[in-house]
Amino acid sequence: MSTAVGTDRAASGLRGAWEVVKRALRMELAIYASIGRFIARRPAIERGGAGFGYHRPVLTVLIIFIVLSAVEIPIFDLVVHRWPAVRIPLLVLGIWGLTWMFGLLCAYLVRPHTVGPAGIRVRAGLETDVLLQWDDIASVARRLRVDEPKSPKIVETGDGADAARMLLLRVNNETVIEIELERPTPVLLPGHGAAGGAQLVDAVRIWVDDPTAFMDEVRTYL
């Protein structure tokens, strides 16, 4: 019995490790895909749809990190240039880190929320990409909400018949658009556990840089 339990735990651990590796690879590919879209000026917006950014609150921070990463590379290279065994790995790591930060910035720019014939597509960073079809949407409203830092992505409200689950895609702990759904709707989120994988949600809240333009576009479909 104990041997079987140990084997199951080992297999579960391997599956978990493999999922982590696959997620890391997907994020790495997303970085380079975002850079490619940025260079080609091809944001991920469906035909007939309109894109709405959510990067303004974090833009300054991202640019600062990119500049600091770029400055660190020649400084460290100057310090360790006499030791090739140290210099080369640090140089590779520095270039990779700079590329990653630039790719993250590109992801914010070329993967906006979209409103189009298929519905509202909400995004966050490199991984989250959820399409909410118009048939599933009950209402869309402009409502500012500010949460505590490190609040969970999935929030449960009420109890019994009034219980509801809400997905919050915050930027700087804030959301400004609330999308209520007709019924509990499955969404696929990155990762696994309580806030990852397939989740049933009754509402979605997002941050949009220009909520007025977003609502104007939504009104053409609802």
Rank of each mutant, 00 (worst) to 15 (best):
S2Y: 09
V5M: 10
V5G: 03
S12Q: 09
L14F: 14
R15K: 04
A17G: 07
E19L: 14
E19M: 13
V21W: 01
K22T: 00
A24E: 03
M27H: 05
A30L: 02
I31W: 04
S34R: 00
G36L: 02
A40G: 07
R42P: 09
G49A: 15
G51W: 02
G53K: 13
H55F: 05
I63Y: 07
I64N: 10
L68A: 10
L68F: 15
S69H: 07
I73T: 03
P74W: 10
D77S: 15
V79E: 07
V79M: 12
V79G: 01
V79T: 11
H81M: 12
P84G: 08
V86C: 03
I88P: 00
I88T: 12
I88Y: 14
L90D: 01
L98A: 15
T99K: 07
T99H: 11
T99Q: 01
W100R: 06
W100I: 00
G103K: 01
C106Q: 04
A107R: 05
H113W: 00
T114H: 07
G116V: 05
V122M: 09
G125K: 04
E127R: 03
T128R: 05
T128A: 01
Q133V: 04
S139V: 02
A141C: 04
R142L: 09
R142Y: 09
R143V: 15
R145N: 13
R145M: 06
S151D: 04
I154V: 12
V155W: 03
E156K: 10
G158K: 14
G160R: 11
L167V: 10
N172L: 11
N172V: 13
N173V: 02
T175K: 11
T175D: 11
E178V: 13
E178M: 12
I179S: 12
P184K: 04
P186Q: 12
P186E: 13
H192R: 13
H192V: 05
G193K: 01
A194H: 12
G197V: 09
A198F: 05
A198I: 14
L200D: 06
V201D: 08
V201H: 06
V201P: 11
V204I: 14
I206S: 00
I206C: 00
V208L: 08
D209S: 10
D209G: 11
P211F: 09
T212E: 15
A213F: 02
F214Y: 15
D216T: 10
D216M: 10
V218T: 08
V218N: 11
T220N: 13
